[in-house]
């Protein structure tokens, strides 16, 4: 069973994403901020990370840059999932090492399609 860390400051979004990903057979962990997500990754690297951009203490792009510098941090497949849906944001995310990018609002089909593309399904 593959593991996925859902990083989003909205409890509602985490709940929706958890439900979709559990149906796709992922073991789920959650974090409500980039800083806590980074601590969790240092303790145990997940196979995949679904990552929000705007969060209060450490945002998604800061988290991603820090993650990729961390031991073993190159391994997780990182999929942004954000309302930031313009080309400059997407390019910045790819440059920082994001593997895929989901623009909110999303649904189960989009999550499934994106996770399949990066080889997680």
């Amino acid at each position: 069973m593959k593991s996925c860390l859902i990083v989003d400051d909205s409890a509602v979004i985490r709940k929706i994403a958890r439900k979709i990903l559990e149906e796709l057979n992922f073991e789920i962990a959650e974090a409500d901020d980039g800083r806590r997500a980074l601590e969790q990754c240092r303790a145990q690297m997940p196979d995949a990370i679904l990552l929000d951009w705007n969060m209060p203490q450490m945002n998604g792009i800061e988290f991603l840059r820090a993650l990729r510098q961390t031991d073993g941090g190159a391994a997780p497949v990182v999929i942004f999932c954000t309302t930031e849906n313009d080309v400059p944001h997407i390019r910045e995310a790819i440059a920082a090492g994001a593997n895929e990018y989901i623009m909110k609002p999303f649904d189960g089909d989009i999550i499934q399609s994106k996770f399949a593309q990066v080889g997680l399904l």
């Binding site: 080309v87 623009m103 999303f106 994106k114 593309q117």
Partner: peptide
């Protein structure tokens, strides 16, 4: 639409061959 391009299209391909 945003929904249509997210079904099946890898983000790198979107950046390369589409404009917003």
């Amino acid at each position: 639409s945003q929904f249509e391009i997210q079904r099946g299209l890898p983000i790198q391909i979107l950046m390369k061959y589409f404009k917003q």
